[in-house]
Design a protein around this nucleic acid. Structure first.
Lengths: 126, 126
DNA sequence: TGGCAGCTTCGACATATGTAGTAGAATGCT
DNA sequence: AGCATTCTACTACATATGTCGAAGCTGCCA
């Protein structure tokens, strides 16, 4: 499932809290997004066609629910980035992240801790 | 500079070895890409318009050179993924990568080492 | 019960992206 | 010189994406 930029903004708002109406979602979109209400509705319809969200009518108002998990969406996006921009390998990506200083000292420290903790355990989510 | 999927495939081929002609690039595209020669040319023209590559005529044949570095392109793509899909924070991304088992034990170990070494140094930004 | 307010559905349109054909110029082989 | 090969430049077209406006329901309140 590939989401477009606009779709990500909507899905992010929806994952944050749902079910939600179009109005609800509007208020949770990034501040710099200034869509007409119908623009959002159009996007929601398209997401519904794509089976990314479900649409239920409560009397005259539609209530939406995500049908794809954030985890799956992230996985797709991540894989795409990896394949498309980093030769499909973690190595280049890791190097890139470190070289670009995408991590500050504190983050590095946290990361090290996470890594060390996780090294002991197994387990998954969803 | 945002590159599309098709553009990434071309730029990857061009970064790999350049200058290069359209024919050269054709041979280095992913195996599953089966474009007509003119399709590639169209893409190259668009990349040229976008100032992502330069086009020089050697007599009657165009020779291309990347004008944007792979590093910069990766940076854009990475930032976009981070902002769009991971709340713009490394934390969620790191957790995601670990949970998804994108890193095996050895890689984690290496990563920890790199992190600890780099922790002392400083660097610059873009 | 007449309306306003808010929702919904449809249709429309611009730009972006993917994909390619055609025509004509430049090259090079014979 | 004449022809086949190979390029380039243009044009075209479908689908995807971003953005709305218009018009028609629904429900609630004075």
């Amino acid at each position: 499932m590939k989401l477009t930029q606009a779709e990500w903004q909507i899905m992010n708002a929806l994952w944050e809290k749902h079910p939600a109406t179009a109005r609800d979602i509007m208020t949770r979109l990034p501040k710099d997004v200034k869509w007409a209400y119908t623009t959002l509705k159009t996007m929601l319809s398209r997401l519904s066609e794509k089976e990314a969200v479900s649409e239920q009518k409560q009397s005259n108002t539609s209530v939406y629910e995500p049908l794809i998990s954030q985890r799956k969406a992230r996985l797709s996006a991540f894989r795409l980035l990896l394949d498309q921009s980093f030769d499909g390998a973690m190595g280049p990506l890791m190097h890139f992240m470190l070289e670009e200083q995408k991590l500050n000292a504190k983050q590095k420290k946290e990361l090290i801790e996470i890594l060390q903790n996780e090294s002991e355990e197994s387990g998954e989510t969803e």
